[in-house]
Design a protein around this nucleic acid. Sequence first.
DNA 1: ATTCTGTCCTGTAGGC
DNA 2: TGCCTACAGGACAGAA
Length: 272
Amino acid sequence: MPELPEVETIRTDLHKRLRGQSIRSLKILDQRVLGNPAAQFTASLKGRRIAFVSRRGKAVMIHLDNNDILMVHLKMTGQLIYADALDHVLVKETKVIFLLTNNHVLVYNDQRVFGRLTIVPDMADNAFLNSIGPEPLEKTLSVSWLKQQLAKRVMPIKPLLMDQAFLAGIGNIYASEILFHARVLPQRKACALTDEEIKRLRASIKKILTEAIKWRGCSMRNYRDSAGAKGLFMDRIKVYAREEKSCVRCKAPIMKIVQSGRSTFYCNRCQH
DNA sequence: ATTCTGTCCTGTAGGC
DNA sequence: TGCCTACAGGACAGAA
């Protein structure tokens, strides 16, 4: 569900709320969301103090005082909700409940049960963390680096943008939005982009992700921030899920195609 | 090696 | 109303 801007919104909020708190107890309602055996998961977390919260790609990293990390990947429908009382946030999709020393609660909800909560003792040893590419908002995302990477790839640019091994954090919504902003057709082969287009692509990646963070992400369906609120970038989406609606730039109808099994939206007139 | 398809799971929207 | 199909912010295994 959530992509980089949504996860970053959750990370920032949770960092403020959770830092310095300890986990008094936890209750596991559905073991399928755990990346470790339940007993080990509980033992690793009970009584631990939360040092800080970071993000890597689409994963929320909750750092504990003993240097273990609780890595939460929300996948499609995961939610991390923080509240002052359990009865405000307990729903039928609630999978794990954390009771904190400030008498607040953190719940993990997940309708589709794709998400995972995993204890990571050593980040350098984690297969997922080792497999993902650079952060798109870091300075290392230069035009020259992009150019070098794109030259090696014949796949269409849209599924490449979603490839976490290439860049970490871009998913199905923002891949379409970035390409619309860059005025590049999603079906273009990555290696065929011109220097000018690569420059625009880099600028659009930064611009769209930064704007989306500013508006606290977007809520197509299940996404909620840690206070249970929807993202406001929803109203600024230009192409995603707008099939047959008119392009905000040129009024042509927005097109929908399927690439690598995922829906892609674009304007056939102003993207080239 | 790279690229694409099917799969995990549950809920909802739309067609008839 | 109900039944059926299609589809949904992700990531992996396996096949081509």
